[in-house]
Computed example of a mutant assay.
Amino acid sequence: MVDSQFERKASDVLQRILLDLLLVTDGRTTDLLELIMNEKVRVEVIRQEQITEDANIMGEFSGGPYYVRESVLIGEKSGFVVSHNIALIYSTHVPPALFENIAHRQQGIGKVMSSLGIRSLRDVADSGFIIGEDAIDLFKKPIKIRFPDLHHPIPYKRYFMYFGRKPGIQMLEYYHPDLLAHRLQQEFKQE
């Protein structure tokens, strides 16, 4: 009984460490998610549209056009939903090649940037844990996170991506709180 209690506590500690890393990293989060999952992830765009409302939620400038993109990252082999993401894209502050690829909706933003060799400065503005019912988008409107059977608080991170002096993309990422448990289950199935 002591061993199983120790193993459960160790699993909880490892889960917390990995989630903490996701919340503070200012690098490509997709790389870390693929490492945790031990598989590639693919993007599924839920919605992507130009918005006409004043999207001056970055606080320092206005003008557009603005685009909002909501997507999920899904494990290619497992089908596990890894993250639920909302991006607000300020098209005039994003490199044209990146914007063109985002408009085609085929890849995640991080993967496009990597394939094009585009670098950015990332500034984490907020992170933490919420319960599913409290999830909001970048406009502070409630959203339904696409994680089934949630039993734990959801880790999230909101950050800005700079390609120059002004932010070009604001990202809000919600991560599945059971990433480590899922990975461990996959490992045990292979044994």
Rank of each mutant, 00 (worst) to 15 (best):
V2I: 04
V2R: 06
D3E: 06
R8H: 03
K9D: 00
A10G: 04
A10F: 11
S11G: 02
S11A: 07
I17E: 01
I17T: 06
L18Q: 03
L19G: 02
L22N: 07
L23Y: 04
T29R: 10
L32I: 15
E34I: 01
E34M: 03
I36S: 01
E39T: 01
E39N: 01
R42W: 02
V43Q: 08
V43T: 10
E44K: 05
R47K: 13
E49R: 11
Q50V: 04
I51M: 07
I51E: 04
T52H: 07
E53F: 13
D54N: 13
A55H: 04
N56V: 04
N56S: 15
N56C: 11
I57D: 04
G63R: 09
G64W: 02
G64L: 06
Y66R: 12
Y67T: 07
V68Q: 11
E70P: 15
E70M: 10
V72T: 06
V72H: 00
I74R: 07
I74H: 03
K77N: 13
F80S: 02
F80I: 00
F80E: 05
S83K: 05
I86H: 14
Y90P: 09
Y90A: 05
T92H: 08
H93M: 12
V94H: 14
V94M: 11
L98G: 15
F99L: 09
F99N: 10
I102A: 04
A103P: 02
H104E: 12
Q107P: 08
I109D: 09
M113C: 14
S114G: 14
R119Y: 10
R119T: 14
R122Q: 14
R122Y: 07
D123G: 10
D123V: 15
A125P: 00
D126G: 09
S127V: 00
G128K: 03
F129Q: 07
I130T: 04
I131T: 12
G132S: 15
D134G: 13
A135Q: 15
F139L: 15
K140G: 09
K140D: 15
K141I: 08
K141A: 13
P142C: 06
I143A: 08
I143W: 01
K144H: 11
K144E: 14
P148C: 07
P148T: 08
D149C: 04
L150Y: 01
L150I: 13
H152L: 00
K157H: 13
K157D: 13
R158N: 12
Y159F: 14
F163A: 11
F163G: 11
P167H: 09
P167V: 02
I169S: 11
Q170F: 08
Y175R: 02
P177K: 04
D178P: 05
L180N: 02
H182D: 03
R183G: 06
Q185T: 04
Q186L: 05
E187M: 11
F188P: 00
F188W: 10
K189A: 08
E191T: 12
